[in-house]
């Protein structure tokens, strides 16, 4: 499970035949170029977020001279979209939409995955088939019907009801969690049952703590998805614009020309920070715990 260490890789490299060394050097250069390509856009945005409006007007590519960290405070006052909606309102909408979405979605997936993986019951095969079907058969163009249903159920622009549509338990997360729950030995359940534990105790106090790393990995990856999801605000909650939607709308010419471009870059950086910090700090947990399909042996 441990990643091959730096020293081990270096030693391995020294003992390789020349042709293999050549291939590895080629790929090393490939990765260096890719790293530069991946980093440049973000360096560009960070650099411009620290410039004054005049400095950006002069050159977007030159290194900042002013280091205007004050942009990171003024973004809360200056970044606004139509309807006078300010950055902090969009930030709050991003927070509550992400929190509610993750809670209902992951909870529902846990319920589905746990029961399918740990019990035997009628129609189990059918429900397992539903989980696979929703992921592997693409049914396209259902957005109109989905919107019509949500409109009929008074879910559009309605945070108190829209969460029901987010609680899709038979999804990709359930697929991942199914593998996790299957991987936990049945002997834990059997021993607990002998000791008199009921199904709720087994679920909350024995199995969930063991599955916790996988749940955290899913929470982080799904957080990134929902935090950056602008469709939610554009299609079902237009009165509750989140940051992703705000950034999209901000680029419309009427707003773009009236507010400084440096504010836009600052808003971009502030928007990406939560996901970036969470994801990068928990990268090892994600790599270890998001397994699908297994290995051949």
């Amino acid at each position: 499970m441990e990643e091959t260490s730096f020293k081990k890789k270096l030693n391995k490299f020294h003992n390789l035949p020349i042709a293999t060394k050549g291939i590895l050097i080629f790929f090393f250069i490939f990765f260096v170029v890719e790293v530069f390509i991946h980093l440049y856009p973000f360096w560009f945005a960070i650099n411009n977020s620290l410039k004054t409006a005049d400095e950006i007007y002069e050159s977007k590519t030159a290194l900042t001279q002013t280091w205007s960290f004050a942009n990171y405070i003024s973004v809360f006052n200056d970044f606004k979209i139509q309807g006078g909606i300010y950055f902090e309102t969009m930030l709050w909408n991003s927070i509550w939409i992400s929190a509610v979405y993750l809670f209902v979605n992951i909870s529902s997936s846990v319920l589905v995955a746990y029961t399918l993986a740990r019990f035997r019951f009628p129609f189990q095969g059918l429900l397992f088939g539903v989980m696979i079907f929703t992921q592997t058969i693409p049914i396209i163009g259902t957005g109109a019907a989905a919107w019509k249903l949500k409109y009929a159920l008074n879910m559009i622009n309605n945070p108190s009801t829209i969460w029901v549509s987010w609680a899709m338990g038979f999804d990709y997360s359930a697929f991942i969690l199914y593998g996790t729950f299957r991987g936990i030995s049945k002997s834990y359940t059997e021993s607990a049952k002998i000791d008199g534990a009921n199904n709720f105790t087994i679920f909350f106090r024995i199995i969930m703590p063991m599955a916790f790393p996988s749940v955290v990995a899913l929470l982080v990856t799904n957080f990134v998805g929902v935090w950056n999801n602008f469709e939610i605000s554009q299609i079902v909650l237009p009165k509750y614009p989140n940051l992703a939607y705000g950034l999209y709308v901000f680029q419309m010419p009427a707003i773009w020309s009236s507010i400084g471009e440096n504010v836009f870059y600052t808003a971009l950086i502030v928007t990406i920070l939560p996901g970036l910090i969470l994801y990068l700090s928990l990268q090892k947990v994600i790599v270890k715990n998001l397994a699908v399909g297994g290995l051949k042996g």
């Binding site: 990643e3 990134v224 950056n228 992703a244 990068l280 990268q283």
Partner: peptide, 29 residues
Amino acid sequence: LTKHMIGSGFIRAIFAIPGIVGVVVFSSI
């Protein structure tokens, strides 16, 4: 990257950035 490159964890983290920041931020930049 995983088996043969030095600093693979760091490099993979950098490759993940466009996915982490999302399509709106990435396309905006």
